Simulated assay, not measured.
Amino acid sequence: MKDKEILAKIESGEEHALDYLYKKYYRMMTKLVISNNGSEQEAKDIYQDALIVFWQKAASGKLVLTSKISTYLYSICLNLWRKELDRKSRLSNEEKDDVEFIDNDKKERMRIINECIDQLGDTCKRILTYYYFDQMSMQEIANNLNFANTDTAKTKKYKCKKRLDQLIKTKYSASDFLD
């Protein structure tokens, strides 16, 4: 079919003209998206959207083609894909901003906790550091600090943790730690 025939069939509502266009230009249009960092599914979606745009303009009778249908479809696909890439880029940048915010937030929380741990005294500082940062077992902590047994280490850890919690609560509000 020639372009004028296709347009006439679309204007008269013959949907097989759309099937014809889909099959005829499928490879060319999907290749455009795939070769520009798109997946096959994204390529199909873009091409289908482009065909809908073309169909709506052609069916309205207001479409005046100054080029071949393939060129017109190609430009629609290209524009739709550029918009999709822009959207993805914005989303990616927003995610990066969120990650940066979370990292800064974590650093600030760690700074607050470390500052309070430093105020606890050497034994508590060592117990909490061994347990939470170095992931040592209670047995290892008891051995390193020359405690009588693991129960002594557990009791001391509990008391140190409680003191740390109280210190943090008196110095900082809950909003410093909650989102």
Rank of each mutant, 00 (worst) to 15 (best):
Ala8Met: 12
Lys68Val: 03
Ser60Asp: 02
Trp55Asn: 01
Asp134Thr: 01
Arg126Ser: 05
Phe177Gln: 08
Ser60Pro: 00
Ser175Tyr: 10
Tyr132Asp: 05
Tyr172Glu: 05
Cys116Pro: 04
Gln166Met: 10
Val33Gly: 07
Phe133His: 10
Ile46Glu: 05
Lys106Thr: 12
Asp49Pro: 03
Ile69Gly: 03
Thr155His: 09
Val53Ser: 01
Lys24His: 10
Ser173Phe: 08
Ile117Asn: 03
Ala58Phe: 03
Cys124Thr: 00
Ser173Ala: 12
Asp105Ile: 02
Leu80Thr: 01
Gly13Thr: 10
Met1Asp: 10
Ser67His: 08
Thr150Gly: 02
Leu73Pro: 00
Glu40Asp: 12
Tyr158Lys: 09
Leu91Lys: 09
Leu178Arg: 13
Arg111Glu: 09
Arg111Asn: 08
Gln135Ser: 06
Asp134Phe: 04
Ala8Val: 13
Ser89Arg: 14
Leu164Tyr: 06
Ile6Met: 12
Gln135Asp: 05
Asn104Ser: 13
Ser70Gln: 04
Asp97Thr: 13
Ile10Cys: 05
Arg126Thr: 03
His16Tyr: 05
Leu7Gly: 05
Cys116Ser: 08
Tyr132Trp: 06
Ser89Val: 00
Ser39Asn: 09
Ile113Gly: 04
Tyr130Gln: 06
Arg111Ala: 10
Asp103Gln: 11
Ser137Asn: 00
Ser137Gln: 01
Lys31Tyr: 15
Asp3Phe: 08
Leu51Val: 04
Arg82Asp: 02
Ile52Ala: 02
Ser89Ile: 08
Leu128Arg: 01
Lys62Asn: 10
Arg163Lys: 14
Asp103Thr: 14
Thr123Trp: 06
Asp3Asn: 13
Glu100Gly: 01
Tyr47Lys: 11
Lys88Gln: 11
Asn146Gly: 05
Leu80Phe: 08
Asp118Gln: 14
Lys88Glu: 00
Ile69Ser: 02
Asp3Gln: 11
Ile113His: 00
Arg111Asp: 08
Asp103Ser: 12
Glu100His: 09
Asn104Lys: 15
Lys106Ala: 12
Trp55Arg: 05
Tyr47Leu: 07
Glu40Cys: 08
Lys83Gly: 13
Asn37Val: 00
Gln56Asp: 11
Gly121Tyr: 09
Leu167Met: 11
Asp45Gly: 06
Ile6Phe: 07
Lys24Asp: 07
Asn114Tyr: 11
Ala59Phe: 13
Thr71Phe: 03
